[in-house]
């Protein structure tokens, strides 16, 4: 049944399409702009001619950025952090979500544990006491300082345990009759059936670790241990910084502005590369969160 098209309706539709497309372009513009700046020559960048397309295109900023040991070091720290952090987060999330997805009849201590973990979502000791704990644990300047304080993402546990609850109990009962242990049930029944949920949460966690920078800033005393985003933060905050290069050829191809733009883009690149997957899964993740048993 088709609604009769008035001229006002047509006008409304045209403006809706226009507005939404403009909104989308507004979301894209800053990224495209920074990309254009990063590929432009320093003189074009500083004279403000660059808007959406590189002028006097050069790879100088990227060559310089990728040639800086600090950048490479920071990139390596970030990679390590993402791998280690994701493994720790996912293993703990799965191990906690499984028992907590049981009924309190099957697992009487469940209620106690739930409150134990949920309380940490509601109340926190705050920044300074956390810093002191990490320092007391002798973890300053160690990669573990970036991984262990956020080892258990409680919200992800909630999402996963709700997912686990939708798995038919009959499967588990049958396995128990066959003499399977809970470890095996988790490994051979729950995990294979929860692949989409686990993929979603893994992506969330990867993005979280890649994007985190504040903990790197405070827990790492030596800038050599900064993950990429913490390193980038120090760059971004310095409006003018002096870099020394003995290569005059490079000076013509790199400026603070183009170099910063190049590094910003390089740091965003892994997220952009993951984005097709993110987009596919995160909608599911949000829906996952709103579906309660």
């Amino acid at each position: 049944m088709r609604y009769q098209e008035h001229w006002s309706r047509t006008l409304f539709m045209v403006s809706t399409y226009t507005l939404l497309i403009v909104l989308a372009l507004l979301c894209l513009f800053p990224l495209v702009h920074v990309l254009a700046v990063s590929f432009s020559s320093p003189s074009a960048a500083s004279s403000g001619q660059v808007v959406l397309w590189p002028i006097d295109a050069t790879l100088g900023a990227y060559e310089y950025a990728l040639g800086r040991p600090q950048f490479i070091d920071a990139f390596t720290v970030s990679l390590k952090r993402v791998v280690l952090g994701t493994v720790v987060n996912m293993v703990l999330t799965i191990l906690v979500a499984y028992p907590l997805s049981k009924s309190s009849t099957a697992f009487p201590a469940r209620t106690w544990y739930v409150w134990f973990f949920v309380l940490t979502m509601l109340f926190s000791g705050g920044l300074i006491p956390l810093y002191m704990v990490v320092r007391e644990m002798q973890m300053l300047d160690s990669i573990w300082a970036l991984v262990l304080p956020t080892a258990l993402p409680v919200f992800n546990v909630v999402l996963l345990l709700n997912f686990f609850r939708n798995i038919p109990v009959e499967l588990e009962e049958a396995a128990i009759i066959d003499g399977a242990s809970h470890w095996r049930i988790l490994w051979e029944i729950y995990l294979p059936l929860s692949k989409p949920a686990i993929a979603t949460l893994t992506l969330f966690v990867v993005v979280f670790h890649w994007n985190s920078w504040f903990d790197g800033l405070i827990f790492m005393n030596s800038p050599a241990n900064y993950p990429l985003q913490s390193y980038l933060q120090t760059l971004v905050q310095q409006d003018l910084f002096m870099y020394s290069t003995s290569d005059p050829r490079l000076l013509e191809q790199v400026s603070n502005r183009t170099l910063r733009a190049a590094q910003i883009f390089l740091a965003a690149l892994p997220i952009l590369a993951l984005y097709p997957f993110l987009q596919r899964y995160f909608v599911k993740g949000v829906v996952l969160g709103s579906v309660k048993g």
Binding site: L95, P99, K102, G125, P129, T150, H182
Partner: peptide
């Protein structure tokens, strides 16, 4: 329920240190 407790223990210890520790701090 023993395996359940075992599964939770690592997260329990880390939460005690890094979430409840600061609360006492």
């Amino acid at each position: 329920t023993l395996p359940f407790h075992l599964m939770i223990v690592p997260a329990l210890i880390l939460t005690l240190i890094f979430k409840y520790g600061p609360m006492f701090g």
